[in-house]
Design a binder for these strands. Structure first.
Lengths: 290, 290
DNA sequence: AACGATATCTGACTAAAGTCAGATATATGC
DNA sequence: GCATATATCTGACTTTAGTCAGATATCGTT
């Protein structure tokens, strides 16, 4: 019925009015929106005045005045940056924290109300994740993390669940050569998680071995982030880490049921090689020389 | 990883900045946002000044001044309403149409760019439809329409395609007792389409027969709008139309593969009855006395 | 014709947002 | 130590948005 462009525009209209409603509800605390936005940025952990100014896109004069008004209300305190006294660091006072929590409560209540009014919760949340990831694609950052961190374990859990769905014979992590976490931290290896605004969207492990090669393991991209080139970015980061560690040969195993992954490897300079382990799940093996 | 409320809030943040970007790009045409919004409302066919004011949520004084500034630019003309000289009707001039088209081009380009940057087009569009429908749920309006209209035919096409997917044996409309369109227009029957901001989201037909009952046919709700109570609203509207037409007994047939539909009927006062036709697809039959 | 209701307009305001040219203090490189 | 760059602040503005109390014209009803 509607062409794709009209559908995107319909979405924009729907969302514009919803965003407007959120803004208006913030006005209920008797503070202009600009000041509320600065207070919330600080509450969410942004401390550097310049960073807040960039994030909110404000003129430096305006920013300065907004900070002053929040200081007059005794909601924030500013101090000089310890290494650079030109820069200012803003921090919530106790009263500021209370006020910030009140804003948080408004936001949480609105989100909760929205969810409560819709019986399709999971479908709706999945759609929101997908769109937020697509819009925030440029904001997706890769972080090297311990594979035992919450974020990494969340990714691995999702990864295993997906393998169980996609492999005809299911998937049991215990049957697979589960890479020891210690092989995926420096200096033997690395583990990289893609984070977008607090949500882990993908991961990849670089596992050091006792052989002359290192292995790429656990490449996973959240359904909400597929098609955005994140797999490619994760692989590039893993290769980069390998180079830093002086690794010259990489190997990986995969399964032909994971078609997207196979395509990615072929497109990025990997060559198929014969089986090099006895893991029961993989049926495709690749190698890349750095 | 993230709880549902955080996921909704992540979506809100992502979308707020995207909406902000759209607004800023509108400023490129050298007109304040308020005036641009009024011009666009008129361009999109809203003519009645009061209606525009309600739609944009403006104060009457502000609205009046915005109209005046657009008139000064010779982008619009206003005339009195032909039946009520208190009301004013706004219309684009030739220059106004050019200007409106320029705004349209900005919006279209942004939507196109967004789509061009994402390979997951269909998934993204489906997610946008779902969210736009959920947000605009209150704005979904039911319209009685000719079953041969574009909107109705779009719904029926989607309905048949879905039956073909969900029935084990497929679905061929020719094998089914395809209700004659004439039986679904007044005074014999009715056909109702749910429209949300230009997108048809569901339909239902009330088909007059030569027997002592009328039939409910073709109840369909778009995947993007399920769980919002639209099926219920459509059925209520069909019953309302039936009462207006003096119909006292309704029947319908359905298939047990369409579980949601069966549940809806049972919950809303329909009673199961024996087979009353020889259509090959249905295996469940209901009746309701008005 | 008179009344109250309705739609829009005008004038007089206020608040918020945004702009811009310096001023001030500090950092960095030579 | 000095010139230059950087980060923030201050003062003096403009623009936009929004509010509110009447004024004006018209409508519908009696």
């Amino acid at each position: 019925m509607l062409d794709p462009v009209s559908r995107v525009r319909r979405f924009n209209r729907a969302v514009t009015s919803a965003v407007g409603a959120l803004d208006t509800s913030f006005l209920g605390r008797g503070r202009p929106l600009g000041a509320a936005r600065v207070l919330n940025a600080i509450g969410h952990g942004r401390a550097d005045v310049g960073e807040i100014r960039d994030y909110l896109g404000l003129d430096s004069g305006l920013m300065s005045r907004l900070l002053r008004s929040l200081e007059d209300e005794e909601l924030i305190e500013t101090t000089a940056h310890e290494n650079d006294a030109r820069r200012r660091i803003a921090k919530l006072t106790a009263a500021g924290k209370r006020e910030f929590n009140a804003y948080e409560a408004i936001s949480n209540r609105q989100a909760k109300d929205f969810l409560a009014h819709h019986s399709q919760r999971e479908a709706l949340l999945a759609a929101m994740d997908l769109i937020a990831s697509a819009l925030g694609r440029d904001a997706t950052a890769l972080h090297e993390m311990d594979p035992r961190s919450d974020e990494a374990r969340y990714c691995l859990g999702e990864y295993y669940a997906e393998l169980a769905r996609r492999f005809k014979q299911g998937f049991d992590v215990k049957l697979s050569r589960d890479p020891d976490a210690k092989d995926m931290v420096r200096p033997r290896g690395s583990f990289i998680v893609a984070m977008s605004d607090g949500l882990p969207l993908g991961c990849v492990g670089l596992k050091g071995t006792s052989a002359e090669y290192a292995e790429i393991k656990r490449l996973w991209v959240a359904p909400a982030a597929r098609g955005l080139g994140l797999g490619r970015r994760l692989m590039d980061a893993a290769e980069h880490a390998a180079r830093e560690l002086g690794i010259v040969l990489l190997r990986l195993d995969t399964n032909s049921a994971l078609a997207e992954a196979g395509q990615l490897y072929r497109r990025t300079g990997w060559t198929e090689i014969p089986r090099f382990n006895d893991d029961p799940y993989p049926d495709l093996f690749f190698e890349k020389r750095l």
